[in-house]
Design a protein around this nucleic acid. Sequence first.
DNA 1: GCAAAAGCGATAGTAATACTATTATATTTG
DNA 2: CAAATATAATAGTATTACTATCGCTTTTGC
Lengths: 227, 227
Amino acid sequence: MLEFIGQIKVKVSDKVFLKDPDSSDLGRSIIEHSIQLIHEIGFECFTFKKLGKQIGSPESTIYRYFENKHKLLLYLTAWYWAWLEYRLVFATANIDSAEERLKIAVEILTNPIQEDGEFAHVNEVILNQIVIAESFKAYHTRNVDEENKEGCFMVYKKLIKRVSEMVLAVNPEFKYPNTLISTVIEGAHHQEYFSRHLSFLTDKKKGEEDISEFFTHLVFNTIKTSQ
Amino acid sequence: MLEFIGQIKVKVSDKVFLKDPDSSDLGRSIIEHSIQLIHEIGFECFTFKKLGKQIGSPESTIYRYFENKHKLLLYLTAWYWAWLEYRLVFATANIDSAEERLKIAVEILTNPIQEDGEFAHVNEVILNQIVIAESFKAYHTRNVDEENKEGCFMVYKKLIKRVSEMVLAVNPEFKYPNTLISTVIEGAHHQEYFSRHLSFLTDKKKGEEDISEFFTHLVFNTIKTSQ
DNA sequence: GCAAAAGCGATAGTAATACTATTATATTTG
DNA sequence: CAAATATAATAGTATTACTATCGCTTTTGC
């Protein structure tokens, strides 16, 4: 299992951090407390100064791990996508039916997150909340193209590719597998956010799990019917 | 037609501005140049100081129209939704078939924007680019709930409601009209952004119009089939 | 037609942010 | 055990996102 964590780490481009936060206690503490703090006060209000207070270090120390707070957000989201992919691989292993595999995948991508005790310094439930609320800030910037070139989004790309292949396994003729899957992933996050803050944009009620049903229905009806 | 503009204005909650920018030449100049400037340098880098330079006024003057730059973004997005709804109403007027009305609506929501000469101080094509790149920043903040209560998103709500009703006109049994339509609107914007910056998340090629085809297909297959 | 109000320009000032730089100490490593 | 590395502590800077004040001009209400 720990080898898998190693792999997950490797997938994140070195460009995201200056020093690997998973290589020291202080680094892991930065990750752990940044997740807590971003969740509490939001990414806009989050600063390295405040984070430094939490972990008992000056802000200059955190700057040795991450160039700026945006890169830290890139790291957190990359970690999240890698973790999702790892869950996906486990959940779909040894399933013969292409339909069944895709169904499981969509459920993993759209269902609420359960805590995974495997990674001590990461609270996956809270990290999921952060991804829902802030992840678009990771790729809606002036530097997207540059960061994309550097490979900052490789982990997300891998995840999309894996699920797209599952779509094509069900219907090899389908023309929009990437569009469909990114719509599902981003859409599920949005609906979760809307149900909490802008209820007029959704039919999902807080706490209910009907969103997974909606997207499963959407995916299979969209790919099965010939165009 | 001008009366319609009046209506569009009224739909934007007074809470969004301190003084109606459409009530003076200076106000309209603020809107016109803010659209240009945000498009050029991005909303993060956009400041009232820089905007002041463009229009030859100090920043303090702009603060008399908008409390801060976030409220200005709220105004621009609200204007955009109101404008879309007005186009929608015109395009679907006198169409008898519920299916045809919905089809037209989805096309308006997902097709590239054409310039509308009607409103001199607003470049709709550029405003659309801004909405695609920055609109989520309008509602992903610490103050969403408060701003939602104040009615800052009423215009968007109206648009969603109108299209949701078109969905229900085709299939009154469908359980997720709001979820479906917000997924289409937000999804179409994302795909446009992805095709320009993160191509691995989409099958849309720059310039091509296949995105409308995808979403039309998705909508009708999702609502027509019984669950 | 005139006084009061409102609109606008110009300038100054402030707290916070997002860093950068430097120095000193502590720890690890070859 | 020396050299490199990691961290703490402190200081400093440019920019941002405002707020405050003042004086001039234009509009308006009677």
